[in-house]
């Protein structure tokens, strides 16, 4: 039980995918201008990331390994992620039109989130089991959501600050992300995985 807790602490705080491993930076900078959109993106990413880490684990264990095709893992995972994203989009559209409208544009964007592919590949590299893979994906998504939401609230405040002209916009966003990354270094040593 405690090892599952350690996986969550590790992926959410110590090895945060955005601020420590620098994965998924495009949506982190791209959809963090407003808090509401950041929340929508976080919800969609959490759902897809958990589901895709599960599916890619199954595809690797039951399809690629028996056939001896491990070298095809990257292209397989890209396919799996695209299918999961498309599937999510269709299901959400049929079952909950309201949620579809809230998440709408963010769903296709998740396909290009490198954290999703990163989680799938790291699961294989770390030889995580079935439950570990799901938790690893879920923890990565929660960590991503946490920093994305906090960052977007902070960017709304920076947007009205008197930032020197050369640093306005994305530049100060990058500097803020760097300082946040510095703060997250404080968690180092909490968990050694």
């Amino acid at each position: 039980m405690s090892e599952y807790l350690l996986i969550l602490v590790s992926t959410i705080l110590v090895n945060n995918f955005v601020l420590v491993q620098f994965l998924g930076l495009c949506p982190f900078m791209g959809v963090s201008n407003k808090l509401e959109t950041a929340m929508g993106m976080s919800l969609a990413t959490t759902f897809v990331l958990t589901l895709s880490s599960l599916c890619s684990y199954l595809a690797f264990t039951w399809l690629l390994q028996p056939l001896g095709l491990e070298y095809l893992q990257t292209i397989t995972f890209i396919l799996v992620i695209a299918v999961v994203v498309q599937f999510t989009e269709m299901v959400v559209k049929k079952t909950s039109p309201l949620l579809y409208r809230v998440l709408g544009i963010f769903l296709p964007l998740i396909t290009t989130n490198c954290a999703v592919l990163g989680v799938a590949l790291l699961n294989i590299k770390k030889q995580n089991g079935f439950i570990e893979s799901i938790l690893y994906g879920f923890g990565a998504a929660v960590g991503f959501s946490l920093v994305l939401i906090l960052f977007s609230a902070m960017r709304e405040r920076i947007a009205v600050a008197d930032v020197p002209t050369p640093f306005k916009g994305a530049a100060i966003g990058m500097i803020t992300a760097g300082l946040m990354s510095l703060a997250f270094l404080g968690f180092s040593g909490l968990v050694n995985i």
Binding site: I149, L150, M154, E156, M180, L185, G186, F187, S188, L190
Partner: peptide
Amino acid sequence: IIRTWGSYPDAIAFSVLLMNFAAPFIDF
């Protein structure tokens, strides 16, 4: 948390920075 389970003996700086980071969200 950081003093007890982390690798730094004192943690005021990191804790303050982390909560600075969360402050706009708390305000919200």
